[in-house]
Every structure is written in structure tokens, then in C-alpha cells.
Design a protein around this nucleic acid. Sequence first.
DNA 1: AACGGCTGCAACCGCTTCTCC
DNA 2: GGGAGAAGCGGTTGCAGCCGT
Length: 238
Amino acid sequence: MGRRPCCSKEGLNRGPWSAPEDKILVNYIKLHGEGKWRDLPRRAGLKRCGKSCRLRWLNYLRPGIKRGNISVDEEDLIIRLHKLLGNRWSLIAGRLPGRTDNEIKNYWNSHLRKRAKGEKGSREYSGKQLLSKEKKITSPPPSPPAGVVQTKPVRCNKVVIIPQALDKEHVTQKKAAESQRNLSCSALQQQEDNSLDLLLDNFDIDNFLLLEAPNSELDQAQLNINEFHENALGAGYY
DNA sequence: AACGGCTGCAACCGCTTCTCC
DNA sequence: GGGAGAAGCGGTTGCAGCCGT
């Protein structure tokens, strides 16, 4: 088939964004809204790839973005969510109001990964020791810890955190995907503080399990999802 | 002061998934 | 149902600044 490149690479700016470029992008999106990223640069008069515009907007220019100063609580949550979800950065970011997947990914790679490894491994290295060793040693990649979801196989929208149904552990990924569509990330972020509190208060994340339930449990899963929707409705999520 | 290695982060790349027709 | 384009995602890269020697 052959994929058409998202943009012609010729004559396009690359690398760090300048203040005027940011301004153009922000103004354009204020006027026309997000979306149509492929056409956006041309329409806005930017010499950038559409992907680049999207990334810049989502990670830096979007209203409500927090930069830096990741709190201890956020750090703890990142660690716990990573333990649960693996490298599902967009999912993790969705639970951290104002944080982006890119920032969390970077923060994990530069700060938390060392600590996570240090806690787990039999030998502890200082940051420099660990990183220099990581770069030199070409051992096979370590097998993922038990309970960590592999990053590649499934898309994030197949996973949902359903506080009210957690204790029953009967949620299938397929059914969960349906509820995820209804309970979108944007809806969650409108309820950022509430949902975060709910998330932290109402369930023990370490015990959270994602199950591939057999067909016989689909009905029960649907009941749980319905119950969840009712509760979410009552809590003002929709 | 100069140099080299390390670190952190912004941005890019390529693949997967979604959506529309 | 299938193809094509659009959007999303995670891994990787590039580079400026920091730090130790």
C-alpha cells in the first residue's frame, strides 16, 4: 500500500520551536480548534510537520499543562501506575492532571527508572553508575515483572479503571473498551481532582487486576459496567 | 580554563489503531 | 468488509547544559 508521509520533509523547520511559531499555532487553534493536523501547518502558515504541531500543542501549548515540579504524591502515583500498567504513558498521564505522556515518560526514564530498579534489584547503583552500566552492558532485556502489562500488544483504550467494579474483578477488556469510550479521558480531566481523589481513595491500585475473563463471565461484566455507569453518572462524570 | 562524559528534556520516527467512506 | 487517511502512542534520538577531572 505504501504510507504517504505525513508531510513533505522539504523546506520544513525542525528542532526546537520558536516563540513566534508557538504563537501562530496557539492563535490558529484558538480560532479553528484542534484536529486536521496534517493540514494545519499549511493553513496556519507554519513550516512544520503536522505531527510536530500536534506534539507541540499537546505537550506544551495546551491550556492547563503543568511543567516540572512533579510532587512527591505525583511521583508515587506514577510509580504505582507504572507498576500496574507498564509503559502505558498516555494512560498514566490521564491519571495525572495537567501532565503529559511525554513528560511522564521522560521523568520516568530520567528519575524513577533508576529508583525502581534500585529497589528491585539485588545490587543498588548510584544514578551515574547505573546509567553507564546500562549503556555498556548488552545483556538481553530483563523479563517484565509479574503483573506488569506489556506495552505493545494492546491499545490503551482496551483498559479501564473502574473503581466500583474492582472488587468483583470481572471486567473483560472488550467490555471495558466500551465503557472507556463513554468515560473519555477528556471527561475524566474535567473532573481531574475528583477523579484522582476517587482513584486514590476507593481502591488499592496494587490489587487492581486486568482480567481476560471467559465468555461465561461476560454477563456479570456487563452488569458491573452498568453499575459503574450508574455510579459515574451519580458522581457527575458524564 | 578546557575537556569529556553524563543528564534531562524536547522533538522526531515509525508503528498501531481509529474513523470514515 | 476493506481500503485509505488521520490520529495516537511509545521508543528513540539529538543536543544544550551541567559536572567532575
